[in-house]
Structure formats: structure tokens, C-alpha cells
Simulated assay, not measured.
Amino acid sequence: MTPSQKSLAKGSPAPGPVPKGSIRLYSMRFCPFAERTRLVLSAKGIKHETINVNLKEKPDWFLEKNPLGLVPVLETPEGQIIYESPITCDYLDEVYAGKKLLPSDPLEKAQQRMLLEHYSKVVPFFYKIPVAKRNGEDVTALEGELREKLSKFNEILVKKKTKFFGGDSITMIDYMMWPWFERMETLQLKHCLDQTPDLAKWMERMLEDPAVEETMFSPEVHAVFYKSYVAGTPDYDYGL
């Protein structure tokens, strides 16, 4: 894997072809959606290269690859393009050998995808609450809603009596959920886990996972990026 490079902005030359035997990830180092794909690449040990994109000043060649202008995007040596985080992750799991992250049983796979749909309703709170706080609004009701949603995920772990959401080892759904939990401290939302002990234990176990260790940033680093992002001048290359 080539080390992450500084982000490429508008006016930068388009990267050359993807090397044979590799796959390319277009990413942004602090994007939680792109982190999902980085987690899967790491967990499966897939040979890849990463090209980081300046999402404020997107290069034209990047918009040709994904007109939505979002990361993550995968590009194969044959020039095929895959985007949207769950789709890129499913693709990697299906195409590459090694540890399988999606269950082989169709019902279990469907259950993980339904759980991901439920989780997609949680994600907006990680954005809404900090914005409301910055605007000086009372966030009690919003935090109450987030607590309620997180308690449902806690209940799932209690009922299943497993360490992770798909069983006693990490599967795809855990990686799909993780990036926002990694940012909870930075977003000042960790207190919303006060009444979800099983979810808190899940977080502790996730922190011990090699793929999580390889892809994550410390709360301090997240805080520096987040401050720059809120100020409207995101420092995509912080720490490089």
C-alpha cells in the first residue's frame, strides 16, 4: 500500500492508470464514509493505493469518475468505477479472497443490511447536534433522540449475547458503523452512551481490532481537522 498522499485539488493532473494487481481508492483522510472502505481494505489485506481528494476544490477528473463528487470511489486497473461506501465495501468483500466480512447465509446478510438501514437514520445526529450547539440552540431533545436510537443498538447486543453485531467476531456491519463512534469524543457526544453499557463494550473491542488501529485517528487529530472544517477551511492534509 502506498502511503496516503496530500489531497489533490482542482487543476491537479489526473492520476495515471491503476497498477495491475492493485486497486485504487479515492478518499479523504478524515471522511467517515471513506473510512468504511479503508477498514475493509485493511481487514482483508487488499493491495491498494490511496489518492486523497480535496473535497472543497474537487479536480475535474475526479468529477468525471464520480459526478456526485463524493468519496469513497474505487477504480480497478481496467478503469471500472465503483462508488458509495456500502457498495464499495460489498464489492471488495465479494471480489477479493481472504476473510469474508459479509455473512454467506442470505438471511443473515439481509439482517445486516436492514441493520445498516436503521443505522443510516442515526448518522445525521452526529452532524445535527454539533451544528445546533454551535448555533446556541438547546440540544436536549436531539440528544434524547440519539440516546433512544443508540439504546436500540445496545438492546440488539444484549439480545444476541455476542461481542459484535454479527456474532463473536467483527463482520461488515461493525465496520459500517464504527467511523462515527470513533468521532464521538471530538463531537462531544460520548455522554450519549452513558446508558448503553454493551455498546460501550463493543466500542472498546473495536479499538483492539488491527484494521481499526491502522485506519483511525486520535480524538486530538480529529479535533484539529474538525475545527478547520467548521471554520470553512478544512485542513485535509493535517499531520502529513
Rank of each mutant, 00 (worst) to 15 (best):
E137H: 11
S120H: 06
K121Y: 01
F125C: 06
G144S: 09
G144R: 15
F153V: 10
K133V: 07
E155I: 04
V139Y: 02
E117I: 04
L142S: 08
H118F: 13
A141M: 07
P130S: 09
N135I: 06
E155C: 10
L142K: 08
K133D: 01
T140A: 03
P124V: 10
I129P: 02
Y119E: 08
S151L: 15
K149S: 13
L142H: 05
K133T: 07
V123Y: 02
L142W: 02
E137C: 04
L142N: 02
K149A: 15
E143L: 06
S151N: 05
H118Q: 12
Y119V: 04
K121S: 10
K152N: 14
G136C: 12
E145I: 12
S120V: 05
K133Y: 04
L146D: 01
E148K: 15
R134E: 07
V122M: 11
V122C: 15
K121V: 08
G136I: 11
Y127M: 13
F126D: 03
V139I: 14
R147S: 03
I156L: 14
A132K: 15
K128L: 12
Y127H: 12
E155T: 14
K152T: 13
A132S: 10
N154E: 09
S120K: 14
F125I: 03
R134K: 12
F153D: 06
E143P: 04
L142R: 04
V123C: 06
K121N: 08
G144W: 03
E148Q: 15
S120P: 01
H118P: 00
L146R: 02
A132M: 12
N154P: 06
P130A: 14
S120F: 05
Y127R: 14
H118E: 02
F153G: 04
E155P: 07
E145W: 01
K149W: 00
L146I: 06
V122K: 05
F153H: 01
A132I: 02
G136H: 01
K149C: 10
F126W: 05
H118L: 14
E137A: 12
V131W: 03
K149Q: 15
T140M: 02
F126I: 09
S151E: 09
V139G: 07
F126L: 14
V139E: 07
S120L: 11
D138I: 08
P130N: 08
K121W: 01
K149R: 15
N154K: 00
E148C: 13
E155Q: 13
N154A: 08
N135M: 12
V123I: 15
S120Y: 02
A141E: 10
Y119C: 00
V122S: 10
Y119N: 01
E145N: 12
R134V: 04
G144P: 03
K128Y: 13
G144Y: 00
N135T: 05
V131I: 15
H118W: 02
L146Y: 00
K152E: 14
A132P: 04
D138V: 00
H118S: 10
Y119Q: 02
E145P: 01
R147Y: 06
V131Y: 06
K128R: 15
F126Q: 09
V122Y: 05
F125G: 03
A141Y: 02
P130L: 15
F153P: 00
F126M: 12
D138K: 03
